[in-house]
Write a protein that binds this DNA or RNA. Structure first.
Length: 153
DNA sequence: GCCAACGTTGGC
DNA sequence: GCCAACGTTGGC
């Protein structure tokens, strides 16, 4: 099993929004970055655990725990001409963008802010903290995942 | 709103 | 295939 951190802007789609979805599940559509796509297409498997991270907001940080709940499949928004995620170069025979479904797994007792994460030496190697890392999906080690889980408990 | 970092695009 | 220009991300 692998561990991941997935960023979402809470104004657009927050951890609470995920909990309110039917089956507490959301297809992670709209990713248009190849590295992030490759993670979803090639590496993320059902049952992998996810730190659900709020970005571009007043207090960035990990809001809760989710999990991967589907195998990879094409992001349908790439075919929809009216979608903001429409990609004219993608075809159904040859889709360009893939995703997985994300499902709510559990709440944290307390939000683990980016500020808090930065205080802990054990987390200093996290890709999240490395310079210029703007990827919306990042791998996390088991140790980092468990450490953050503990901070939030 | 600023700006560093970096991905993408397109002309050559 | 290079690289300048441009766009986006995201913390501050």
């Amino acid at each position: 099993m692998k561990y991941w951190l997935m960023k979402s802007e809470p104004d657009v789609f927050s951890f609470d929004d995920l909990k309110k979805r039917p089956k507490k599940t959301e297809p992670w559509n709209g990713v248009r970055n190849y590295q992030a796509r490759n993670f979803m297409r090639d590496e993320m498997k059902i049952g992998d655990q996810i730190l659900f991270y709020h970005s571009s907001c007043d207090i960035p940080g990990v809001a809760g725990i989710a999990k991967v709940s589907s195998q990879t499949y094409p992001d349908i928004t790439q075919f929809e001409a009216t979608s903001e995620y429409f990609d004219p170069k993608a075809t159904k025979e040859n889709p360009r963008w893939f995703l997985i479904d994300v499902t709510f797994m559990k709440d944290l007792k307390s939000f683990v802010s980016l500020e808090e994460i930065k205080k802990h030496k054990n987390l200093s190697e996290m890709r999240l903290l490395q310079r210029g890392n703007r990827l919306s999906i990042l791998p996390v080690t088991r140790e980092e995942f468990e450490y953050i889980l503990k901070l939030g408990t």
